[in-house]
């Protein structure tokens, strides 16, 4: 099955996830930095808020996020399948 994905919602999650990733990478080398840790936690909270919107408009990010009564994990598009 093919799903129409909302590119703005996708981009928002990519931005959030990149910020989370970048902060985690920094924290690996600076685990005592409370300012960075608080920023990380703030981003995680923002991600939690954005997750429902993401799943409704893009689809499950991992197969653990499938909530339908149908296995939507294998719905297209896969990330490399852009419209041409």
């Amino acid at each position: 099955m093919t799903r129409r994905i909302n590119k703005d919602v996708l981009k928002r999650m990519q931005q959030l996830d990149f910020a989370i990733w970048e902060t985690a990478l920094y924290l690996d080398g600076h685990p005592e930095n409370t300012q960075a840790l608080n920023y990380y936690k703030k981003l995680i909270a923002m991600r939690e808020d954005a997750k429902k919107d993401y799943e409704a408009n893009v689809g499950p990010a991992t197969h653990r996020d499938v909530k339908c009564d149908r296995w939507t994990w294998v719905d297209e598009p896969w990330p490399w399948q852009n419209e041409v």
Partner: peptide, 16 residues
């Protein structure tokens, strides 16, 4: 092999 696989269920199997 996933990128040239035309069937989505099989892309799922290859991914997982």
């Amino acid at each position: 092999q996933r990128y040239s696989m035309p069937y989505s269920e099989v892309v799922g199997i290859l991914t997982d």
